[in-house]
Design a protein around this nucleic acid. Sequence first.
DNA 1: ATATTATAGACTCATCGAATCTACAATAAA
DNA 2: TTTATTGTAGATTCGATGAGTCTATAATAT
Lengths: 146, 146
Amino acid sequence: MKYSKATNYALHTIAYLGLLPSGKAIGVKPLAEIQKVSPTYLSKVLTTLVKAGLIVSAPGVKGGYRLIKGVEDITFLDVVQAVEGLNPLFHCSLDNHVHDNENCFIQQTMNEAEKKMEDHLHSQTIAQVLKKIDQRVSDYLKSEAG
Amino acid sequence: MKYSKATNYALHTIAYLGLLPSGKAIGVKPLAEIQKVSPTYLSKVLTTLVKAGLIVSAPGVKGGYRLIKGVEDITFLDVVQAVEGLNPLFHCSLDNHVHDNENCFIQQTMNEAEKKMEDHLHSQTIAQVLKKIDQRVSDYLKSEAG
DNA sequence: ATATTATAGACTCATCGAATCTACAATAAA
DNA sequence: TTTATTGTAGATTCGATGAGTCTATAATAT
Ligand code: SF4
Ligand code: SF4
């Protein structure tokens, strides 16, 4: 079990967008170049973020992607769920309702555990990334922006 | 991202073993029958639990699987990690060490979140499953034991 | 109009979960 | 010691899905 690469790309892209001057958009090409991924694929990932309401996109010459909300209002959970979806990590194997799913302690425990993880992801914002990010990372991202 | 079916089988099997009289072993066939999975595949899953030190196996006529420790000493985390492994859910995409991995807030946050989940899984034991398990489940398991 | 940029869909490829099959090793009971 | 029983290991298969490519299309600023 592991997070998809798409989640990785999404998190990094959001952080990168947070470094831009407010309201400024940037195309997928430089974003893809930094992360060493193909533009078309990254675009596909970013489109899911658009649909999730985290960023907006605009075609055309001065188009690209930009944040909607401030980075202090975007949580890790927002990004992770936008990419990974909302299905629980653990799912009961029995389709037939032999068991009382409501009161099943196995499901309950597994879901509670997942919730703990989600709670933490919800408590951390992208703003904190930009604050605490290692200076070298910031410099690197800025230099790659060209 | 989701837990494998193997984790599901493992959790249920451990719970089932916990229902047996102390020290008694049971073969893979009834275990597989209850969970509607092939014996050979379940055996493969259980072998990983053997290697993880959660259960012991014995070949031969009166052989089978049985628990080593009491159910109050087996945590969800034990079972989950035995099957899913120890690799973190999130892994940095950059091989080259352009960034300071130690201080990266993205990795840090994702790993902390995973740890929250693990902490909860560590706090819950199989004993609690057997205590809180819905009576119908218990009855079902026992009846299937034949 | 035209260059630029995002989007959508079909498609490919590799990986991995899930499972099967078979051969083999170990053990208790006869 | 033989024999039936049971777990183990390896090779192999199958399908789903993550990851990515390619191409065509739509939208927009200049
Ligand atoms: S014990 Fe819980 S998780 Fe397992 S089959 Fe029953 S309801 Fe599902
Ligand atoms: S920002 Fe963190 S997770 Fe991303 S590439 Fe750098 S070290 Fe890795």
